[in-house]
Amino acid sequence: MHNAERWADRTTIHLPATAGAAVKLLGELGSEGRLLAGGTWLMRAPMTSGHYIALAGIAELRQIEIGQDRLRIGAGASHAELALALDGLDDLKGLADAAGGAANPAIRRRATVGGNLCTTAFAASDLASALLAAEAEVTLITPAGTLRQELAIYLDWRRTSAAQHHLLQHVEVSRRAGRRLCHARLPLRRAGDYPVAMVSLAAGSDRQGRLADVVVAVGAVESQARRWPALERTLTGQLPCRSAAITCAQANLCQFAGREGPEVPGWYRQQVLPELVARAVAQWAKAGGQE
């Protein structure tokens, strides 16, 4: 075997030690360079020759800091690391479920939070939906300096040409007393495939135990996760019961047009949303002892 000839054009993988060095490289390589996080998305297609800037060696990106009122997740943390770190935090259970339910165990050990949020081609990111509901903010390093954005804005911004040379550094979520985040996902099998639809819900409660300050995000239904403002308004002030959840969701269902795909037709993604809202609300009630 002539191994030396195995790959006609060899690839270069750079392993910078700091986020700053990575961004510098990104600037230098221009259109030649691509970021490589966990690799679980890029490696599915044969990698083209060129330069890859691997983030695996950047320790600062892997940190997960859990404070009283704030959670900071390094973009290089894996899904598995995140799920483990959040284990037992009732208010963020939905985020732990999103991180711990995506794909399968071996992929969760490799796929990173940052990679999941940066990949524009991936509509079924559990984390994008859960973090949207958590009203997360992202911190980006760009050649022009550090930039902070709401995740909702970032998801649009990452598709623009301005986003070309940025590095997602970390994601921050504020923790507010009495607020709980839940995540309901619908894979076609019990697990192991990407959900065809998902609903994330964050809310507090008023004195009567009704939903307050509701935030709802929907993932996988359209090409990008987004919030569901009309439902947020309708759900606010409702008792956390199944029938209310379904009624409210049904009333606002027309705001989503399901994405067609080989796995399910578009209408299906839309039609299962009321059930997913009901499941998310049920989880929320259960976590608050209101079963």
Partner: peptide
Amino acid sequence: EGFCGACLVQLDGAPIAACLVPVAL
């Protein structure tokens, strides 16, 4: 593609889909 698990190897103690790991990493 990391779906089937037939290529799993331990990387620093935990099973990883080797098909998704560029050898340099």
